[in-house]
Amino acid sequence: MSVFNLGSINIDNFYRVPHIPGPGETLAAGAFSRGLGGKGANMSVAVARAAARSIHIGAVGHDGAWCVDRLMEYGVDTCHISRLDAQTGHANIAVADDGENQIVLFPGTNVELTDAMIGAALSEAGPGDTLLMQNETNGQIEAARMARNLDLRIVYAAAPFEAKTVSDIAEYADFLILNAVEAQQLQDALGKGLAELGIGHVVVTMGGDGSRWIDVASGAEHHVPALPVTPVDTTGAGDTFTGYLVAALDRGMPMAQAMTLATQAGALMVTRHGTADVIPDLKDIEDARLG
């Protein structure tokens, strides 16, 4: 089976800072680095490193050819990444000494995808494959419609969070993945509980409190505890969790086992500085002996 990921590709600019700057504060960075990122790219790499076939649907500009090369090096199928006459999306990321981060995004080519680009990629998909989406590109609703007609599993990671987009995609999605803050915002905005969205499975990540999975059909709720690690950078941890979860399901793992593997991957990720370039593979997780 394959995971088709309609997702962003960003050039990540990292600034190491003593603390997250407050409103109006000017803060000198102690270090700077640049890498591959974007929630979409991160998840595509995580899917590939979790031993599933990862096909990225996206776009870069004249400055992003190296991003495509990097994705290919990491095992991602890049045939459906378009090259546009515009600027690649980028993110300026402040990472504090305690591991917390602050991110400012410029979407660039991530929001210039066309239905034709998406359709060309999904024309290669079939029943049993997965469509994974986030909220850093355009085209999610049309992609979801196409995927539903093709009988794909549809996984929606609701970040950056927009309640209306979640509501619009709810009729198509099989899985919704969001963090605890987004879950509360969604319930407040829609006035309904997570089990009332019409989505079969809801996964909520809760940082140091682990994650929970709501199996709407059975009414059961399962909690997976976090693993004890010392975080140095939380950037990309949620994306790593999501990519591993989707890859594990694509490979036929039961949901509980997939959640455990995703938790291990996310825990290892926060012990590393960076995003897509440092996402762990299965051997890294085995060697780390987490859990």
Rank of each mutant, 00 (worst) to 15 (best):
N5P: 06
L6S: 07
I11P: 05
Y15W: 11
P21L: 00
L27M: 14
L27E: 02
G40E: 10
G40R: 09
N42M: 10
A51F: 02
A51L: 11
A52S: 05
A59N: 08
G61M: 05
H62R: 15
D63A: 01
W66M: 10
R70Y: 07
L71M: 13
M72V: 12
V76D: 11
I81C: 11
I81E: 13
T88E: 08
E100W: 01
E100K: 11
T109F: 08
E112K: 15
L113N: 13
T114E: 10
D115L: 08
M117A: 14
G119T: 14
D129C: 08
T130L: 06
A163P: 03
K164I: 12
K164P: 00
Y172K: 08
A173C: 06
A180E: 15
A183K: 10
Q184H: 15
I199M: 02
G200I: 10
M206L: 14
D209V: 06
S218E: 09
E221C: 14
H223Q: 13
H223W: 12
P225E: 01
P225Q: 01
A226L: 00
V232F: 08
A237F: 03
F241W: 13
D250Q: 13
R251I: 01
P254T: 02
Q257R: 04
L261R: 03
T263S: 14
A265I: 01
A267F: 03
V270G: 02
V270K: 03
T271H: 01
T271N: 06
G274W: 05
V278W: 06
P280E: 02
P280K: 08
D284W: 10
A288Q: 08
R289M: 11
